[in-house]
Every structure is written in C-alpha cells, then in structure tokens.
Computed example of a mutant assay.
Amino acid sequence: MTSPALPKLSLHHGSSAIAISQSEIVEDLPTTMKFQPVKIRAAPISDLWRKPPNTDVDNAPTVLISVPLNLHKFHSAKVTVSANWNTQYDQGGLVLFIPDEDTTKWVKTGIEFVSGAPKVSTVAASRWADWSIAPLPEAANGKLTIQVERETKGTERVESLWIYIVNEETGEKEGIREVTWWFRHDLEGGQKAHSHKSLLVGVYGARPSVPEGEGREKEELVVNLDGFEVTMFED
C-alpha cells in the first residue's frame, strides 16, 4: 500500500491564501508531516494584524501547506523560529487560518521583538485581534520552538487550541495561551459550509516597522523556520 504523499508548501501573503480553502479538503495525508527548513524574507510594513475600528492588515509573507486540511482531524503544529530580531515588532512563527461567515479567523504565534527584546508572542483574531506576550529567556538567543495543539479529554476532541513553548533539549511543553473558540465550527451541530471546516496551516514572518538608520529603509527581516511539523489524528 502506497503511503500518502507529503503536500507541498506554497508562498502567499497574509489571508490572500484563503483561496486555498476553496479547494476540496484533502483527507489522504500522512499522519505526521515533516517539512524542510523554510526561510522567509519579510519587507518593512508587512504585517498580519486586526484592530478596531478599521485596521485589518494582512500582507505578511506566509508559507502554507498548499491544500486545505480537515479541521476535525488537525492535532498539532510545531516549528523552531529564529532571526536577527532588531526592529520593533519584527516577528515570525506559526500561522493558522479558518474562513468564517463574515471574516477570516487566524492565529499567529512565535517570537516578536518588543521594546528592545524578543518575546514570546501570540495573536488570535476573530472579528478583532488580541495580543499576548511573555518573556523569552536571554539564554534562548532569540530562538524558540513553539507548538499549537488541539485540547483533548481522553479520546474526545474539545474546543480549545493550546499554545506551548517546547524545551528543545527535553521536549517538555509549557502552556502559555488557550484560544477557547478555535474549533467552534467543528463542535457545532447541523450542516456547515465546506469552507468553515477548512484549516490552513503554515509559517510566517513580518516586519511591521521600518528599521532605523540610514540606508535601512528597505532592509528585509530574514526569518528561519526549522523543523516545521504538522500532525493529524488518525481517524
């Protein structure tokens, strides 16, 4: 029996990638998908951010699995992110998108450079986005392994998406954020449109600000994303 093929990765910019969700959900995928290292170059004034009353920016470069995943079968995603973080709001890590009735829901998590230091950063966006940051130890040298994972209780898949910091040496996970509404469409009864059960998963980088210093106006942030891995439930 032939093993399912590993899907390709494709470059997009922000939620413009939502066009992928118009394709049929691909069910025949490896349970564990491991990808080669990814390098993303983010130009100044690139971002993925949503804030009332009218800010909705989604031009950040994203490298996504080129087929929509089944939201119900998604278990986890993990990546190690690093860069020469040096400009306010430099960032990169994991990104997930879900099309909804009125907007595109998304979560991004990884490292963000804030007030002169790289921090662990997570943004979850529904109608509007929120933002949380946590310290990144100096010993990490601007490098972080981040994981998102569906919460389970026994064999039951429940509503929350958890964000974890992963210790590279021990594999131990530390939960830092719970997104309680992420799997809402998977738990609601009744018939839902196909797109609401689609999930797009990938990695991203962004440089929302312009670097300071003469001649740096167009300087790109180079984000290294290693060990990108996505796992699916078997059933």
Rank of each mutant, 00 (worst) to 15 (best):
A17Q: 05
S121E: 09
V67A: 02
Q22P: 06
W128N: 13
T231L: 02
P61K: 10
E151P: 09
I18F: 05
T31H: 11
G110I: 03
S82T: 08
G154S: 00
T180Y: 10
P211I: 10
T31E: 12
P53T: 14
P53H: 14
G189S: 11
M33Y: 05
P211T: 12
F183C: 04
I163W: 03
V57G: 04
E159S: 14
D58I: 07
G110Q: 06
G190V: 03
H75C: 11
H72W: 08
S132T: 12
A17L: 09
K108M: 08
I133D: 10
G142W: 06
A117P: 08
W182S: 10
D47S: 15
P118D: 03
I65K: 01
E112M: 11
L221M: 05
P99H: 01
S198V: 06
V201Y: 05
S21I: 05
M232F: 00
E169R: 12
S132P: 02
F97M: 08
E168P: 13
E27D: 10
A43D: 00
V222H: 02
H196Q: 15
M232N: 00
T155K: 10
V179R: 04
G154D: 08
K73F: 01
R207S: 12
T87H: 03
S195M: 11
S115Q: 12
E178P: 03
D130A: 12
N224W: 02
I111D: 03
S126K: 13
V210G: 07
A19E: 15
W182L: 11
T145L: 02
T62P: 02
V203H: 05
V203Q: 00
T155H: 08
R184Q: 13
T2D: 15
T80V: 09
T31Y: 05
D226Q: 13
H12F: 13
S126I: 04
P52F: 13
G215K: 01
D186Y: 08
Y89N: 13
W182T: 07
R127K: 13
E101R: 00
A43C: 00
G92P: 00
W85G: 01
I165S: 03
V203L: 06
V67T: 09
L64R: 03
G190K: 06
L161S: 07
G190T: 04
